[in-house]
Design a protein around this nucleic acid. Structure first.
Lengths: 203, 203
DNA sequence: TGTACATCAGTGAACGCGCGTTCACTGATGTAC
DNA sequence: TGTACATCAGTGAACGCGCGTTCACTGATGTAC
């Protein structure tokens, strides 16, 4: 009666599936994967502990869905980051920086995607890696494309882990983390790695 | 009676503490951290489930001890890898490669060190990171030493994770993994990063 | 060498706990006529 | 618009389980004299 519902809610709760996923992400952010439980997730969502079974086959299915969503978002972020960037080397950097930014903005997703038992290379992550390989291939040439991609992925992945573990001083916000990633990428093409910019350009 | 004991065994079991740690490592290797239990560990070690409490205060204490051991081994491997290597740039590579090799040879330790809740930056890992910083400082100059170390650490750390997750094709043995790391490091100073070797040298 | 005592590693029963999952149910929502 | 029925999201009790941890105990080992 109070006010007209803004969203059309179907059935009783409406969007319990989404609410449960958000609750799971919140719990994993706060307490880590290792003690995440379905029951506490339902509690946080304000439903009985049996309710989740109307939306997910079991506990792992919920986590798998979070992983799937994470890979989807990651791919979108990557595509968005390289859109309009011409220089292949810049594209690789942009993608890596977006990767790191995604990790620090969605730490729970990152954890589920990369340090849980539910996301194996075969179950998820179809597009994100392929996109990385394509970008890396464009910059590295056809001689060692996959390994160039793996190198860039390693650097991005490593930075993400260190950031999430709080091992990078002064990187306390997503912006600061992104700046860090930007500087590291610059560094690898700069003093440490040499200046390849002059040679690799198209014109 | 059968034969004289080779090792002097004290008390009943002898070296249950060590046996328990080995059992824990074996279990974590096989089943992952997320379902490691003290009881199964004791079972595998052939003692009652209460026996571990004579050697470790609680479950986390056992894991913490594995982490501590891991950081100790990692530091030793790093020191050994850079011993006798003159060129600072080569030292950084050598350390990073040793880091990766350690990860693939001791995956359970790596997991406990970097993806468990027991090893926080404040509880352990005193020497290993300092060693890395020192090496990186020597190669990068005093302008951005810590960030150079973080970059190298990121690359090594990322490669380790991808290798442990089985995301690097054809890297099925410790040797193959080390070769991969070697190639990636070479790649970063090579085509992708440019050839810094000619400029960065001492003479 | 032998005896008495102290120490302490390992035992097995017992505790309480939160978990994942199932099930018969209820009550709200959607649909056919 | 109204009624009868089907659907299905959420409930709450119940299940069995393995876990971490405690405790009084036992029996082997070490030590003093």
């Amino acid at each position: 009666m109070r006010s007209s519902k803004r969203k059309k809610k179907s059935y009783h709760h409406g969007d319990l599936r989404e609410v449960l996923m958000n609750a799971a992400v919140e719990l994993i952010d706060e307490q880590g994967l290792h003690q995440f439980s379905l029951r506490e997730c339902a509690r946080l969502a304000g439903v009985s502990h049996a309710a989740p079974y109307r939306h997910f086959e079991d506990k792992d299915a919920l986590l798998r869905e979070i992983a799937r969503q994470g890979f989807e978002w990651l791919e979108a972020a990557g595509r968005s980051a390289i859109a309009g960037v011409e220089d292949a080397r810049d594209r690789l950097d942009a993608y890596g920086i977006a990767y790191v930014r995604f990790a620090v903005e969605h730490p729970a997703h990152h954890r589920v995607m990369f340090t849980s038992h539910v996301a194996t290379p075969n179950t998820v992550d179809p597009g994100a890696f392929k996109l990385l390989v394509e970008t890396a291939t464009a910059v590295a040439g056809p001689d060692a494309p996959e390994e160039a991609a793996l190198a860039a992925w390693s650097l991005s992945h490593g930075m993400s882990m260190l950031l999430l573990d709080g091992r990078v001083p002064h990187a306390t916000s997503a912006e600061a983390a992104e700046d860090f990633a930007r500087r590291v990428f610059a560094q690898w093409r700069g003093p440490l790695g040499g200046t390849a910019r002059k040679t690799g350009r198209k014109r």
